[in-house]
Design a protein around this nucleic acid. Structure first.
Length: 274
DNA sequence: TCCGGAATGC
DNA sequence: GCATTCCGGA
């Protein structure tokens, strides 16, 4: 136990917000019991005191800028007990996230990267625990980003809802009710998510989960599209485009709707519930 | 400054 | 699996 190395123990105090638990549970990191770099980056981004070192890029989606690469590397090295750590090595680790689509480089902007929260949620939000907030909005995190994270989450939840039948706790009507039923801001999974409304999905066995998600599941347009025009929720990201029925897919540079892999031949995969 | 291959360690 | 380290190249 290299306890002496830790400099950022856990989200606390600060701004009174926090990322979902899984973001801090290094044990939940797939394939590793050690903290992962992106966890660490999120920690720094979340903390006010490191705002001068690394911060969300205002107005962008999941984009953050490393203002002091050397300092970030130093902190990372300290966390990992690697005093020889430097930005070159750290950035190499970051680049490994490109292939995993956890992170993207913002070309043309120095030390600027962009998180792919959808991917992080897909991979890390354990068992779709409904109490696990998709992502609570840190002050500097653009609201729209969070909304899109929620949208992404919804995009996966809704098919499950259909599979589970009506009036499931995650049934659209229930979701709708929880979203519209109060004057408070859209529920992002915080204290407004009462267990009685959002029982833990962990209560549902894994077989209820959809088939293994590919890195980028090609969401049906009706899923990504706001379900009802009257609902003023979840505006699409700037690069988002409504699906063109029958139209040819266009390359989409947005990490929120990245180029989908070739559709798998799935008979009856019209997306319509039985 | 950024990228990615390769070897290596845990 | 996930870095860490080193390195050549763009």
């Amino acid at each position: 136990m290299k306890a002496g190395c830790s400099i950022v123990d856990k989200a606390e105090g600060g701004g009174g917000y926090h990322f979902p638990e899984w973001a801090y549970k290094t044990e939940s990191s797939p394939g590793s019991r050690q903290i992962q770099l992106w966890h660490f980056i999120l920690e720094l981004l979340q903390k006010e005191e490191f705002r001068h070192v690394i911060a969300w890029q205002q107005g962008e989606y999941g984009e953050f800028v490393i203002k002091d690469p050397d300092e970030v590397a130093r902190l990372w090295g300290r966390r990992k007990c690697k005093p020889q750590m430097n930005y070159d090595k750290l950035s190499r680790a970051l680049r490994y996230y490109y292939n995993k689509r956890i992170l993207h480089k913002t070309k043309g902007k120095r030390f600027t990267y962009r998180f792919n929260f959808s991917k992080l949620i897909f991979v890390n939000c354990p068992l779709w625990d409904a109490r696990c907030p998709a992502l609570l909005a840190p002050p500097a995190l653009p609201t729209q980003l969070v909304q899109n994270v929620v949208l992404s989450r919804r995009a996966l939840v809704e098919p499950l809802v259909w599979a589970r039948g009506p009036r499931h706790p995650l049934h659209p009507e229930v979701l709708e009710k929880s979203r519209l039923g109060s004057a408070s801001p859209p529920c992002l999974g915080g204290s407004c998510c009462h267990p009685e409304e959002f029982p833990p999905l962990a209560a549902f066995p894994c077989p209820l989960l959809p088939p293994p998600l590919r890195d980028w599941a090609p969401f049906p347009g009706h899923v990504l599209h706001p379900p009802r025009p009257s609902l003023p929720l979840l505006p699409p990201p700037p690069s988002w485009e409504p699906p063109t029925p029958g139209g040819s897919p266009k390359p989409n540079p947005s990490p929120w709707a990245p180029t989908a892999p070739p559709p798998e031949p799935s008979p009856g995969s019209s997306g319509a519930p039985p």
